[in-house]
Amino acid sequence: MSDFNEEESSGRRKFIRVTTIGISAACGIFPLAAGIPALLDPVKKNSGESAKVPWSKVAPFASLPEDGSPAKFEVVQETVVDAWTTYKDIPVGAVYLTRKEDEVIAFNLKCPHLGCAIDFRKQTNDYFCPCHNSSFALDGSVTTENSPSPRPMDTMETKVEKGQVWIRFQQFRPNIEEKIPLS
């Protein structure tokens, strides 16, 4: 009889313990859990199909040096959305533009290694990144062996319309061989 009672009471005690721990844990984790989706929101927004990259007007075609040497331009985008703010006509980055007959080649100013700004060197007529000494030829290809930069300078789509150069400005994932747009 007493054995039975003890068994029942120890069963009951176990139940109480488990329930208590369970409920306490649920309550303890809840506040954090309530914010997890919001916290992960940026990841979720990135995984969707990215919107088509818009065309931005950069400069008059006539302003590019005729000898094919590069010139640096700011890229002003018509609409830029940063979280809640919608900006109109603000600079989003810079490019080097070079003429190639009637067409234009555009290189992103950012180094494909880790994102420093690339210089154009007049004396040596090439591109040089002062951060970790990557250098690139005028066609964007890597010139040094053991270059820190794993790929050539990043090009972007361009077009010339009514004497104006347009560009689809983009940034790319740094420090990998493949050129993958960020969006």
């Binding site: 309530a34 914010g35 809640w84």
Partner: peptide
């Protein structure tokens, strides 16, 4: 932005 654009922001 939190209330209307962020995933689960309204709940938090």
């Amino acid at each position: 932005f939190l209330q209307y654009q962020v995933w689960g922001g309204w709940f938090l």
